[in-house]
Nucleic acid binder design. Sequence first.
DNA 1: CACCAAACAGACAGGTCTGTCTGGTGTCAA
DNA 2: TTGACACCAGACAGACCTGTCTGTTTGGTG
Lengths: 185, 185
Amino acid sequence: MGRTRPGDAGAKVLKAASALFYRDGIHAVGVDTVAAEAGVTKAALYGNFGSKSRLVVAYLRDRDRRWQEEIDAITIAHAGPRERVLAVFDAYEAWLSADGYRGCAFLNATSEFPDPADPVREVVRHHKTALHGYLRAQLQRAEPQRADVLADELMLLLEGAAVTSVVAQNAQPFRTAKRLARTLL
Amino acid sequence: MGRTRPGDAGAKVLKAASALFYRDGIHAVGVDTVAAEAGVTKAALYGNFGSKSRLVVAYLRDRDRRWQEEIDAITIAHAGPRERVLAVFDAYEAWLSADGYRGCAFLNATSEFPDPADPVREVVRHHKTALHGYLRAQLQRAEPQRADVLADELMLLLEGAAVTSVVAQNAQPFRTAKRLARTLL
DNA sequence: CACCAAACAGACAGGTCTGTCTGGTGTCAA
DNA sequence: TTGACACCAGACAGACCTGTCTGTTTGGTG
């Protein structure tokens, strides 16, 4: 019977791991579960990723890449810097609400990996630095002299809305954050 | 030899659990480790708390109680509502920096317990609701008509600064948050 | 067609997890 | 003094964890 072609196992594992790690938490999901959900053997999982730690890093890198695509879509869809910045709030909210307010995968990973030197934390810093850089680049065009401070402040609002919406299990914090962001701009 | 008096085991376990759960994460710490660190047997731990889940809830309740004492101290030390609100930012920052920016114990627990119906999440909601209520009560005296919105906004700034300071491993986000809070007031 | 890489199936090792149980020891109060 | 109680010491069960191993089957390529 048509078994899957070689080389697909890695992608299937990554897809299953993404869903499970995000939904249940990283420490709470074992590699057996990931392999079973992916329809793949543990040997194939280890052949592709080497260890669970590396699979976790791959999971976060993949999510960062998909988020970057979202940012690119925003850049294409909106021309003005203010519109782009506000669209980031909408995109963030959409990602969180789509999965029942489970929170930011990178902040969750930060909670589960306390060591700041862990490779996981490097991916998190990379992701957040990229987001901050995008905001600052946009603001540089709109309000050059306030760009740095504004980018810091908008990051606080974004992250605050993210975690607060998880506790509250609804999108209301994002409305508060976006309204305040609009007045700051 | 002077063994400890009966009744002390519970307090010793709670103290050890608080330190370990907060530092390493809840799922990452086993009950054997907690019992060993407390200088107590597992039997005593289970005799006092019944299960790890209940110990986790006790840990968060205890931390909430200690935070409430901090809030009470702020109320005593400052008379004006604006001073009290800004002092909350300082207290939050002090708690995080004192433990190497490991983050808010309640938000970390939220990451580790995805089910919103979990007793752990109820403690988290209680804690955050109490904080929000304190801010709103203070603001009611300073700016009655804006109190509700302002309390929401300050919560976003507090939570945003908390998680961002963990990623960055420094207190800079709190300075940004406090400055913005001051201009909002 | 023959070969090889990559998948399969599934057992296995060694460790850790939560939770229980047995039996001994110390303390306090009646 | 005696009994209740809370603890100690440590083994134990059963599940789950990561990671490895043996051997087989398959699909794509030279």
